[in-house]
């Protein structure tokens, strides 16, 4: 049975989905992740789906669920690296993933998580996706 590894990095949990998710695997991931958030009292969850090329409505819901569950457990969820085709599919399916934070890549996702942990008040309910500290 396949299993998606959940890595701990400081106060964050990293999940990198490298295979196409099927329903059972997604459900297991959801259960494992909630357990891990609880066990490690993580502050943030970063899900990398850059290798996922196929999604269906079930997958979209699972991702949404994970975000809502982590939020209840006081951890922010950021989904990074979504493929254009996947984004279009989710929109066409009517799943705009409200409440899930997104970022273009791992690096930007990490920065976003950090900024949210630093001042949670500011970003708590806004779907803020940009936090570039580029200054000139």
């Amino acid at each position: 049975m396949d299993k998606i590894p959940i890595l701990r990095m400081g106060a964050f949990l990293l999940v990198s989905i490298q295979v196409d998710l099927y329903d059972r695997l997604a459900l297991n991931l959801e259960a494992d992740l909630v357990q891990m958030v609880n066990k490690t009292s993580a502050k943030g969850v970063l899900i990398d789906i850059s290798a996922v090329s196929i999604v269906d409505s079930f997958m979209g819901r699972i991702i949404g669920n994970i975000a809502s569950m982590s939020k209840i457990l006081d951890a922010q969820t950021v989904v990074v690296g979504m493929q254009p085709a996947v984004a279009i599919t989710l929109i066409e399916l009517g799943l705009p993933l409200k409440g899930v934070h997104t970022a273009l890549d791992m690096e930007k996702g990490m920065r976003l998580l950090r900024s949210m942990i630093d001042d949670p008040e500011e970003d708590a309910d806004e779907d803020q996706t940009i936090d570039d500290s580029i200054t000139e």
Binding site: M82, P84, A87, I88, L90, P96, T102, D105, K108
Partner: peptide
């Protein structure tokens, strides 16, 4: 739709 899709991508 376009705006939502862009948001999903993280932009």
């Amino acid at each position: 739709k376009t705006v939502s899709a862009t948001r999903l991508m993280g932009a």
